[in-house]
């Protein structure tokens, strides 16, 4: 019996523990990772590299690193472009995810910041994200802006 416990202990120490450690160190934001995989990886791919020419890579993006607010804003409100189809409709380039809470947006953003932008620490938390989201343009604002831009052309 003792021998067995000994063995078990060794197995735990030598295999399971390092494995668990290895898995957890890449996953400081397990919820962020899970949500990313479920909602974003379709287009931006699991490794963040996107599809060249169609869906942008998120890896090592200096612009996103400098403007950290763009990630939560993209998630909540989507990304829009102003080309015109027929009358004056606007094409949605990336749909927003308005159902995700501030905390979830924060976790996904931290996951992206650490896994793809190579930041050592996750720069977001719920409060910071709420603040950033207040300042980015909402979907309705963007529509209004695009519309007035098109009309003045």
């Amino acid at each position: 019996m003792k021998v067995m416990i000994n063995h078990l202990g060794r197995i735990v120490l030598s295999i399971i523990l390092p494995l668990a450690l290895l898995m957890s160190c890449g996953e400081r934001y397990p919820q962020g990772k899970a949500l990313y995989e479920a909602q974003c990886a379709w287009c931006h791919m699991s490794d963040g590299t996107g599809l060249e020419g169609i869906y942008p890579s998120l890896v090592d993006r200096e612009d996103l690193r400098k403007q950290l607010w763009r990630i939560p804003c993209a998630i909540r409100y989507g990304v829009y472009d102003s080309f015109r189809i027929g009358g004056d409709t606007f094409s949605v380039v990336m749909m927003g995810f308005p159902d995700l809470t501030d905390a979830e947006v924060s976790n996904i953003s931290n996951y992206i910041a650490m896994s793809f932008l190579q930041l050592q620490e996750g720069p977001y938390n719920e409060r910071i994200v709420a603040d950033m989201l207040k300042r980015c343009r909402s979907r309705e604002d963007t529509f209004r802006l695009l519309k007035s831009k098109l009309q003045s052309q």
Binding site: W42, C43, M45, L51, E52, I54, Y55, M95
Partner: peptide
């Protein structure tokens, strides 16, 4: 297609 097509296209590429 918002789901499986982008990764299919990536592999096709």
């Amino acid at each position: 297609c918002p789901t499986i097509c982008p990764v299919m296209t990536k592999h096709m590429k």
